[in-house]
Design a protein around this nucleic acid. Sequence first.
DNA 1: ACATCTATTTATAATTT
DNA 2: TAAATTATAAATAGATG
Lengths: 186, 186
Amino acid sequence: MVKTSMGRQKIEIKKINKENTRQVTFSKRRTGLFKKASELCILCGAEIAIIVFSPAGKAFSFGHPSVDSVVDRFLTRNSALPDHTNAPSLVDARHGASVCMEVFNQLEDEKKREARLKQSKKVSNAQFWWEAPMDNLSLNELEQLMVSIEELKKNVVKRIDKLSLSSGVVDGRDTHMVPHGYGSGC
Amino acid sequence: MVKTSMGRQKIEIKKINKENTRQVTFSKRRTGLFKKASELCILCGAEIAIIVFSPAGKAFSFGHPSVDSVVDRFLTRNSALPDHTNAPSLVDARHGASVCMEVFNQLEDEKKREARLKQSKKVSNAQFWWEAPMDNLSLNELEQLMVSIEELKKNVVKRIDKLSLSSGVVDGRDTHMVPHGYGSGC
DNA sequence: ACATCTATTTATAATTT
DNA sequence: TAAATTATAAATAGATG
């Protein structure tokens, strides 16, 4: 077999100067970071919020059960009890079906957020509402949905595979991984 | 050379039941997650905040330049007036919104379907519901679901393409990695 | 920009100390 | 209870389509 690639090269952990390389690395590693977070949530029942701003000022976030809930809990120093009492819907859900519902819930959350935004917008600058925010929110919703759909798909594929052979246990995710398309921050 | 260890073994991404193992894994992976975040900051000049709650309710955080600054930036951005100078057209916004509604409705259908299934199975024990439920779906149903998902995806991708924007450049430095002693939550 | 492919580095599960 | 070890799984740099 011929060597067709040098494979992964060791790199120093210092700012990447080449614009393009930096962008690619950012994208790959951000994905990797969110995946690791997702795994930590599932494996250990942790709650995690991650907020990332790209050098360009674009925001991305990951949240389980949601960015808001974790950030709120953190900010209010709400050392909460582990919720065995709560419905098993979020933390322990691990199958395609609940992911379906989760996608649904996500959209509802997004709509609520949108409604809140809309409300606050009315107070200050009502006239701008139709000029820009809706676009960003819609884009957010769609991108968020894409991620959810991918997750859902993976779960269903996995389930199909298992059913095809025999049967067994699945794992699923109900996590939010959100790119926030607010355009340039500069 | 004699094998003195089995080395790393593959594990399924699902909740670790063994208390001790879960604790060790949580600790190791949390460290790994923060390291990855740190590297992403340095390599790409990103700004990142991570908040992690252990299952016991103990909080850990990572922030560059600081958790607060990144969270503030995020919250401000999410409630601030969007910059309307480079906003896409209203028409696109409406299309986006309507696609969202479409997706929403389809998901709602899916949810109802799941609810029916759940009902018919008379799942009295909540634990059973979230541990094995997807088995209720037949292979056929799953494959149909796959097709629907693909359709959804195509629609959403198409819509995102139309809405997509682009952006510019910024920078950052100095990092904090903080364990917060919140005491056991239980 | 995005996906794919390799060769390699890095992370880490199981074990030992 | 935690730190070190070791073998393997997983992530990813660089190249390419």
